[in-house]
Amino acid sequence: MNGKPAGGLFISFEGIDGSGKSTQARLLAEALGKAGYETILTREPGGSVGAEQIRSLVLEGDPDRWSAETEILLFTAARRDHLEKTIQPALRAGKIVICDRFADSTRMYQGISRGDLRTVVDDLHSLMIGREPDVTFIVDMDPAIGLARAKARQTSEERFEDFGNDFQVKMRAGFLALAEEFSERCIVIDGARDLGEVNQDILSKTQEILA
């Protein structure tokens, strides 16, 4: 890899629950760090003190705990704090920010899969966030396999997994449609392959961007 991106580089990872995107985000951060890049690995919801507090509100509890409208407001509030406290300072310092989920997840989970609220999500995003990642890797995975993986984690943050397989099928279709809509920044990655093979594919594409 050559040099450091001027003004930093913002990379997000998206995909259905259990797709392996979190693991791939971590592996990319580790590889870039070893190559000499200043890299920040973060996540959504979360990534700052305030956003992590909101994370527990939206990812734990009964599946029907919040309406889709309330979730949009909570996720946007968390994202704004994350942007102010973590993402923007790192990018200004010329670092590479690797984020496990960003606005695309809200577009899918709340904007489409839980109600026809995509316009609301986009309007709030434009008003309060105002930027997209430079690159988005969408890790594609069979919904049944992804859901089984997600449930096997046995964490307290299973609220969205509890919506079931039909929800995940809808989400996968939504992410693939999103990749076409934002084709200038979205790269679809086949997540059904060996872990190392997926990692190498993502690393190779990142090297091309950084070259």
Rank of each mutant, 00 (worst) to 15 (best):
E84R: 11
W66E: 02
P133D: 00
R55G: 00
L27T: 11
D81H: 06
R185C: 06
S113L: 12
V97R: 05
S204G: 13
T106R: 01
S19R: 11
T23Q: 06
E71L: 03
V120G: 01
A29W: 08
Y37R: 15
Q24C: 04
L210H: 10
I98K: 04
T39K: 05
R65M: 04
E30S: 14
T206R: 00
G61K: 09
I11C: 02
A6C: 05
G33W: 03
M1Y: 12
Q53P: 01
I138T: 14
E84L: 13
S48K: 11
I187Q: 04
V139E: 07
S204F: 06
D142H: 09
I138W: 11
D100T: 09
S56H: 12
Q88K: 13
G33V: 07
G36P: 03
P89W: 08
I96Y: 13
Q24H: 11
S19D: 08
E44F: 02
E161S: 12
S183Q: 07
I187Y: 02
G130A: 08
T136K: 10
G61L: 06
K4F: 02
S183M: 01
Q88W: 05
R80M: 15
Q207P: 06
I40L: 14
D17Y: 04
K151R: 13
R172W: 13
V97N: 04
R26C: 00
T86C: 12
D17E: 15
S56P: 00
D100I: 01
E38R: 05
S105D: 14
T119W: 03
K170M: 10
S56T: 05
N165H: 11
I112F: 14
V169C: 04
A51F: 12
Y37A: 13
I187W: 03
G191F: 00
V188G: 08
A51S: 14
T70H: 04
G174C: 08
E60P: 07
D194P: 07
G7H: 07
Q110D: 05
L27C: 08
G3S: 02
E184D: 15
E71G: 05
M141T: 09
I129N: 10
R131V: 05
W66C: 01
K4W: 03
S105N: 12
